[in-house]
Structures are given as C-alpha cells and as structure tokens.
C-alpha cells in the first residue's frame, strides 16, 4: 500500500506547528478587541489617566495584540472543526490508498488533535510581543524539525542507547508517521507522546495566563 495516510499525517503536523501558528499570529496582530481605541489614550478629552480598559486588551506600540479574547478562541475552535471536515475527503482518499481502516484514521485524528492543540496554544498564548512571537516560532520549529533532527543524530551517532527510540516517539512528525501505518491497534502505542503534546498546550496556556 502507498504511504498516503502517513504523508498526510506528517504534512498536517508541519501545518499544525509551522504554518498555522504563523496564520494565527498574523491574525492576532491585526485583531483589535471590540471597543479598544485605535489611537493612544492621551487623546481622551477628560484627561483620564487610565489607558488600560478593564478586562480589555492593550496593544503594543507595534500593534501586536497582547491578549487573546474569547471571540478568538471560539473562532479558532470553529476553524479547527472546519479543518477536520474539509480534511475528511483527503483522509478518505489517503486511507483507501494506504489500505487503512477506520480505526487507523481515528487514531491519526486523535494524535493530530494533540499536535494542533500544542500548535494553537504556542501560537496564540505565547505570542503577545515581538519577543514572544520569536519564542513561538522557535518552539514550533523545534518541535516540528528540531526533534526529528535530534532523532537522526541520536540514531546516527549514539545507536547503542534507547534515546533515539524516545526521540522518535516524542517528535510529532515521526510519531504520526508511525501511528499512520495501516491496521494497527486502535489506541496509539505508545500513548504518552499524545499526553506530552496536550501537556505542552496546557503549559503554554498557563504561561500565557502568567504573562
């Protein structure tokens, strides 16, 4: 069978960690919360000193939104649902060509949802300043490209240890590649990388709150 489901899964990992975060960051940088002033608050006629409306977001001087509002969360949730629906035909074709069954597709979708959660959280929660955006892009690139590179280096230069096996499972690209094989057991084996991706998303949300 063709590795169609495997390449689809790996491609979507790259989308979740490298491309989609850039889309989200660009959208966040452009978005203005409802009611927030476009101009600096020094133009308020009564000379009020408060320049931060309660509960509203402020904009950095370069226009980077410094907070994620509820509308953004709901909109991106709808968008991810739309991705899942729009990707359905692709998964159907890939599963047919790759000799995969329904449980294979569901397993890949389960793993991918963890990766998308991590990508979403990294992009939307950490990228609240130009420095934060650099951190977000760097984190996505490390997850998507750095971990596979580390796996390759471990495999090439330290094959005796089990480190390369851990790196293979930890790197989303290689993990999804292995999980998208046809006719495996329903639950991912191992399951802990999915938990790691979800934990990464939760950690990014927590760090975002702390900031």
């Amino acid at each position: 069978p063709l590795p169609a489901l495997r390449t689809l899964a790996a491609g979507l990992v790259l989308h979740a960690l490298l491309i989609y975060p850039l889309v989200l960051m660009r959208r966040l940088a452009r978005s203005r919360p409802a009611g927030a002033p476009e101009n600096p608050p020094s133009q308020t006629p009564d000379g009020a000193t408060t320049n931060v409306p309660d509960g509203a977001t402020t904009n950095a001087p370069d226009g980077v939104a410094t907070s994620v509002h509820g509308g953004f969360v709901a909109a991106t949730a709808c968008e991810l649902l739309a991705f899942a629906i729009a990707g359905g035909p692709f998964f159907l074709v890939a599963a047919y060509l790759g000799d995969a069954v329904v449980s294979d597709v569901l397993r890949v979708l389960l793993c991918l949802s963890g990766v998308y959660a991590a990508g979403w959280a990294i992009a939307s929660r950490l990228a609240r300043s130009p420095g934060g955006r650099s951190v977000s892009v760097l984190a996505g690139a490390l997850l998507a490209l750095g971990l596979p590179a580390a796996y390759y280096l471990a495999l090439e230069f330290a094959p005796a240890g089990a480190a390369h096996r851990v790196l293979y499972d930890l790197a989303p690209v290689t993990f999804l590649w292995s999980q998208a094989a046809s006719r495996l057991a329903f639950w991912p084996q191992p399951l802990w990388p999915v938990a790691v991706y979800v934990a990464l998303a939760a950690a990014a949300v927590l760090v975002g709150w702390a900031m």
Binding site: L2, P3, A4, L5, R6, T7, L8, A10, G11, L12, L14, H15, I19, Y20, V23, L24, R27, E79, A82, F83, A86, G87, F90, V93, A94, L97, G98
Partner: peptide, 21 residues
Amino acid sequence: GGGVLFLLVCLASLAVGIWPG
C-alpha cells in the same frame, strides 16, 4: 487565508504519498 493553506498542505502531502505509485 488559513483554510486555503490547510487545503494546499493536504493536497501536497497526499500527492507526496501517492508519488511512488
């Protein structure tokens, strides 16, 4: 914008997958 990129990634990765065949 985001949706078009998603479809492009799907199409490209699927094309890579069926390339050998």
